[in-house]
Amino acid sequence: MSRGHRTVPHTADIALEAWADSREDCLAEVVKALVESFADAGSAAPGETVDFTAPEEDDEELLAALLEEVIYQLEVHGRLAVDVIAGPSGTGLRLVTVPAEAAEQVGATPKAVTAHDVRFGQDNGRWHARVVVDV
């Protein structure tokens, strides 16, 4: 199984790209890309989990909503998402978090997901995601 992520230069923002063999693994990779763009959780022990109910919309809206939830958890609850796993009974997703103060800030904190250039879908048997985030 192959999976990964990267950040791509983008004027005044940050573009994230991720890929994986499964939809859930691709979502986990893009969340990791977002978090690694501004924080290093190092060896912080995972703490709370947060259930995320996916919206009943298309894949791009799911991706944007998930990343907005990651930003919301950081801003409002001081939680930093370090992984995404399938929720109970295979429905929804679960964010695995650490306290934000356990991480070292290494970049600009994201403010929001842009409404343009969100892509998430399957191509040739592999899932791909691309999103631009305001910092």
Results as ranks from 00 to 15, higher is better:
55 P>T: 13
64 A>I: 05
7 T>G: 12
41 A>L: 01
34 L>Q: 08
25 D>Y: 08
60 E>Q: 10
63 L>E: 08
71 I>H: 08
58 D>G: 04
71 I>W: 03
14 I>H: 00
56 E>H: 09
64 A>L: 08
51 D>V: 14
6 R>H: 13
44 A>W: 00
50 V>N: 11
59 D>K: 09
53 T>W: 14
50 V>F: 11
35 V>W: 02
46 P>C: 00
62 L>P: 04
63 L>N: 03
34 L>I: 11
64 A>R: 00
39 A>Y: 05
75 E>L: 11
49 T>H: 15
65 A>E: 05
43 S>E: 15
13 D>C: 06
47 G>D: 02
31 V>T: 11
14 I>D: 06
52 F>T: 01
64 A>P: 08
43 S>H: 15
48 E>H: 13
11 T>N: 07
18 A>Y: 04
16 L>K: 09
36 E>N: 13
74 L>Y: 06
65 A>H: 01
59 D>Y: 01
60 E>L: 06
8 V>N: 07
18 A>G: 11
31 V>P: 10
7 T>M: 14
50 V>C: 08
12 A>S: 06
57 E>R: 15
47 G>H: 02
68 E>P: 04
29 E>G: 09
65 A>T: 06
23 R>G: 00
73 Q>T: 09
32 K>R: 15
23 R>S: 11
21 D>L: 14
32 K>N: 13
65 A>L: 07
45 A>F: 12
27 L>Y: 01
17 E>T: 06
54 A>R: 14
69 E>I: 05
25 D>H: 12
51 D>N: 05
22 S>F: 03
34 L>K: 04
55 P>K: 12
26 C>D: 00
62 L>K: 10
24 E>C: 12
72 Y>D: 09
71 I>C: 01
68 E>L: 00
22 S>R: 07
51 D>L: 13
45 A>Y: 07
5 H>D: 01
58 D>Q: 02
60 E>M: 03
6 R>L: 11
44 A>F: 01
45 A>H: 14
9 P>W: 10
23 R>F: 13
